[in-house]
């Protein structure tokens, strides 16, 4: 396994519109990094350029500080797991897993040994003689993973590997991938559009928007300190309060309409403030700041909690309340936005 560095990567298919604009990031040896974004944001393109499947328009890909940008795909030592699994339909499970070893001209006896060990590790030993068409989705996924791992790749690339599985199996495979990654100390680049999935398994998350990187941080940092409104929306910040431009009074007080809101983070360049629905408090008696009246206009039952839509002079707010005492539409409430949960965003 190795370090990966991507420098100023750009891609245009037609010479006019840029699918990727100046992407730069690095992945350290043994790190699990996810690329997160909606479809069409360029995450798969990035992965495919790194794999060598499509040529870049400009920029470099470095592995252990060696420029591999011009190395053809079959001479790079990477593993890849595809969304469609892309197993060889004419080969048995054993032969599918052995494929990468055969192209490397490894002795037959060694191939046999290695494949058997890998099938054991991935729990496929009983299926060695089956063909892909005879396997379930989860089993195919496992074969695809085993096939990629057996060549001891410098980097494991995964393109939405879980999105074709049902919810229960997805969780199970997710854990399994995590377990294998830790056990084999793999460097992984994982593409997904599922925020929960990628936060659960990644050391770092790279959030992409229309061909550029919006934020590249640990899941915890992204969760608590989203850098842009786009990122915040992607990870479940439902409430956005636009603030008056240049209304910041002393870096910690900002005006939204006529209301002065207090933050604990520097809000000098803030365009909008954001807060998660579960951080808003209703009817807090000792509230002294960031508090105003509202009226409930809608209610959803989420099992663990209720989610209310509250109308106020600062617009509509989504509020999640774990208390099991149900409020009803039309109820008058006081909203309190705790300063430490109120994040100023400049973009």
């Amino acid at each position: 396994m190795a370090d990966l560095e991507v420098q100023n990567l750009a891609k245009s298919y037609d010479g006019k519109t840029k699918v990727l604009k100046d992407i730069s990031f690095s992945v350290k040896n043994g790190e699990f990094v996810s690329i997160l974004g909606p479809s069409g944001c360029g995450k798969t393109t990035t992965l495919r350029i790194i794999a060598g499947l499509i040529p870049e328009t400009s920029g470099q890909v470095l592995v252990d500080n060696k420029d591999i940008t011009k190395v053809p795909v079959y001479k790079r030592n990477f593993g890849m797991v595809f969304q469609s699994y892309a197993l060889f339909p004419h080969l048995s499970v054993f032969e599918n897993v052995a494929f990468g070893l055969k192209t490397r001209k490894i002795a037959k006896s060694e191939i046999k040994e290695k494949v058997a060990a890998m099938l054991e590790l991935t729990g496929l030993s009983d299926l060695a003689d089956k063909f892909p068409a005879q396997l379930s989705g989860g089993q195919q996924q496992r074969v695809s993973l085993a096939r990629a791992l057996i060549i001891d790749p410098e980097l494991l690339l995964m393109d939405e590997p879980l999105s074709n599985l049902d919810a229960k199996l997805r969780l199970k495979m997710r854990e399994e991938i995590c377990r294998l990654q830790k056990k084999m100390k793999m460097t992984v680049l994982f593409v997904t559009h599922d925020q929960q999935e990628c936060f659960a398994i990644s050391d770092k998350v790279l959030i992409m928007k229309q061909g550029h990187i919006d934020q590249f941080d640990t899941p915890q940092t992204i969760f608590h300190h989203p850098r842009t409104e786009y990122v915040a929306r992607f990870i479940g910040y439902d409430n956005f309060v636009p603030v008056s431009p240049n209304s910041c009074q002393d870096n910690y007080h900002v005006k939204a309409g006529e209301t002065v809101l207090t933050t604990t983070e520097d809000c000098l360049n803030a365009k909008v403030l954001t807060i998660r629905p579960e951080n808003i408090v209703l009817d807090l008696k000792e509230a002294t700041q960031n508090t105003f009246d509202g009226k409930i206009i809608n209610r959803e039952y989420l099992g663990q909690s209720f989610k209310y839509t509250v109308e106020s002079k600062l617009g509509e707010f989504k509020v999640e309340e774990a208390r099991q005492k149900m409020r009803s539409s039309g109820d008058e409430v006081t909203l309190t936005l705790p300063a430490k949960h109120l994040h100023p965003l400049s973009e």
């Binding site: 795909v73 469609s84 060889f88």
Partner: peptide
């Protein structure tokens, strides 16, 4: 043919000729 299958072969170290004879032609059998 699913083009991703040929891409998977390439990533596993199969050059274009090897892919043609070991992956494409068998599937077209």
């Amino acid at each position: 043919l699913n083009v991703e299958i040929e891409e998977a072969a390439a990533i596993l170290g199969s050059n274009p000729w090897h892919t043609l004879f070991k992956v494409v032609i068998p599937q077209l059998a």
